[in-house]
Write a protein that binds this DNA or RNA. Structure first.
Length: 276
DNA sequence: AAACAGGCCTAAA
DNA sequence: TTTAGGCCTGTT
């Protein structure tokens, strides 16, 4: 009944700048989790993947063909993170954070999923954010079988737009539900064209996102950075306010980091969250 | 029990 | 332009 498709395994041998734990625990995404044996499993673009570390590097297990089609871009493998770190470390006050987070990569997530995820994230904690996103996915996302496990893809806007009041209420997302529903209807109707926003310069793209109910500066910046790969975006939440004060004091301007500002932000955020 | 959690919105100065 | 309070819900 179930057709067994071929798996492919790609090994990242030079993994100084590819550390699954940092990539998935640094707060940029919500749908990857580690099992007891340290293997990370997750879904993106309707595809499942497993990542495990061993002596030889990081092994990426996926469907045959998906590495080239999906994961190579998703993991931002064409960017030189060693060079990016070196550039950011020209600022001495950033060096500890960059050293701590070495191995982070900014995932190129789907804009629609990023939009929903960060709408849900507002005034919420990570376990609950993950729970709500998982509920939504299992409620109406496509089921995926991969290597003996079942996953649910993140649902399209049209699927979310079709959910009833009762189904939406089951997510337990509180006041964020109305924002989610409004975004789904706007995207499903075509009134909001996310792929068109991708083509805009960062400031214009942000203006469009800010028109959405429940999307302010912080959520919009997260969507720009994690959903559109615009690394000049710089999300500032309560943790980043603390980090900016701790590392730089007053007079800080993220634009000094130019086209790597978003990456600098992620190193700072992750370091601050770690409590060091 | 009350405060808080990876904001945003509205009303009021 | 900045500030205060309210908002769903779950956890401590």
């Amino acid at each position: 009944m179930l057709t067994q498709s071929k798996c492919a395994e790609v090994i990242i041998a030079d993994c100084e700048d590819f550390e699954p734990r940092h990539i998935f625990e640094c707060g940029q995404c919500f749908r990857f989790n580690a099992s007891d044996d340290g293997v990370y499993r997750g879904v993106a673009f309707g595809r499942a993947v497993e990542l495990r570390r061993d002596d030889g590097g990081v092994r990426i297990l996926c469907e045959d063909g998906d590495f080239e089609a999906v994961w190579k871009d998703y993991f931002d493998l064409s960017r030189d993170y060693a060079a990016a770190r070196a550039e950011l470390c020209r600022e001495p006050r950033l060096r500890d954070a960059v050293a701590f987070g070495k191995g982070i990569r900014i995932l190129r997530q789907e804009p629609w999923e990023a939009l929903c995820s960060f709408i849900i994230s507002q005034c919420n904690n990570i376990p609950r954010i993950k729970g709500i996103i998982e509920s939504l996915s299992s409620l109406c996302g496509e089921k995926i079988q991969f290597n003996g496990a079942t996953y649910s893809a993140f649902p399209d806007a049209s699927r979310v737009a079709e959910l009833s009041e009762r189904e939406l209420a089951s997510l337990r997302a509180g006041y964020r539900t109305a924002y989610l529903s409004a975004a789904a209807r706007l995207v499903a109707s075509g009134a909001l064209d996310l792929e068109a926003i991708r083509e805009l310069p960062t400031d214009k793209a942000k203006e469009r996102l800010l028109e959405l109910p429940g999307v302010g500066e912080k959520v919009a910046s997260c969507v720009l950075l994690f959903g559109f790969g615009k690394l000049d975006a710089f999300p500032v939440d309560v943790w980043m306010k603390r980090a900016i004060t701790a590392f730089f004091g007053s007079g800080f301007d993220y634009r000094t980091f130019g086209s790597l500002a978003g990456l600098a932000q992620q190193y700072m955020f992750y370091y601050m969250r770690s409590g060091k």
